[in-house]
Simulated assay, not measured.
Amino acid sequence: MDRSIPLCHLSELPDGSVRGFDLRGSGRDTVFVVRRGALLKAYANACPHHGTPLPWRKNAYLNAAGDRIVCAAHGALFEIDTGVCTLGPCLGDALTPVPLTLQDDGELCLAAMPFEETSP
């Protein structure tokens, strides 16, 4: 049984962009996907410092230079390709990766629900 969760078509995630997805219908993004060329990375939308959501507004996950993921709560910076914190109070910790699949038809999917369905 295929438990993958469709997110969007790859064409809806332009190179250099980030998009959040609300998997619970709670009004808050649960996961986000970053695209850098062929690199596609997905992470849970929770800072390892206190579990707070990362963006200050919808889909605003990157710093001004666009080369790091940033936590709006305290300015921690994370590498896009590894999720490791390189600056901030959670230095050395990492974002929680979420497994992705890219289907032959270009559909981007989560490999499976990455965490338990709980209330936000």
Rank of each mutant, 00 (worst) to 15 (best):
N59A: 03
K58C: 13
T86G: 02
A42Y: 04
A94C: 14
L10E: 14
P48I: 05
N45T: 13
A65W: 03
K41G: 04
L54E: 14
I69E: 09
V34H: 01
C47S: 12
P55N: 12
V98Y: 08
V70G: 06
P120S: 11
R19W: 00
G16W: 02
V70A: 13
I69N: 06
M1P: 15
D22G: 11
L13A: 06
R36D: 09
G27V: 07
L62Y: 07
C47H: 06
Q103V: 03
C47N: 10
I5F: 11
L7E: 05
V34F: 01
D67T: 15
H74S: 11
L108Q: 15
A111N: 13
A111Y: 12
L62P: 10
T101R: 15
P48G: 13
L23S: 03
H50D: 14
P97V: 06
P53S: 11
G20P: 04
D93K: 00
E12V: 02
L23W: 01
D15N: 14
G88R: 01
N45H: 10
S17W: 08
P14L: 01
H74M: 07
R28N: 03
G51A: 05
A73G: 14
G88C: 08
L54Y: 09
Y61M: 03
D67Q: 13
A44F: 04
L39N: 07
T52F: 02
A42E: 03
A73Q: 15
N59T: 08
D15V: 08
A46T: 09
A111G: 12
G88E: 07
T30R: 03
A46F: 02
L62F: 09
N45F: 05
L100W: 12
R57P: 00
A60P: 10
L108E: 14
G83T: 06
A111R: 15
K41A: 13
D22V: 10
L39I: 06
G16C: 06
R19D: 01
D81F: 02
G27L: 03
T52P: 00
G92C: 00
G66H: 10
D15E: 12
L91P: 01
A72D: 12
D67S: 15
A72K: 07
I5E: 04
L77G: 01
H9Q: 06
S11Y: 01
S4F: 09
N63W: 03
L91V: 00
D22C: 05
E116T: 07
V34R: 01
L40F: 08
L13W: 05
S4D: 11
P53K: 11
H9A: 03
A60Y: 13
T101F: 00
L23M: 05
G16M: 04
G75D: 09
L102F: 08
F115I: 08
G16R: 06
L77T: 09
R19F: 00
H74K: 12
I80V: 15
N63E: 11
A111E: 14
H49L: 04
L87V: 14
L108N: 15
K58P: 08
L62T: 04
R68H: 13
G88Q: 04
D105K: 13
T82L: 01
D2H: 10
S26N: 07
H49E: 11
A42R: 11
H49V: 08
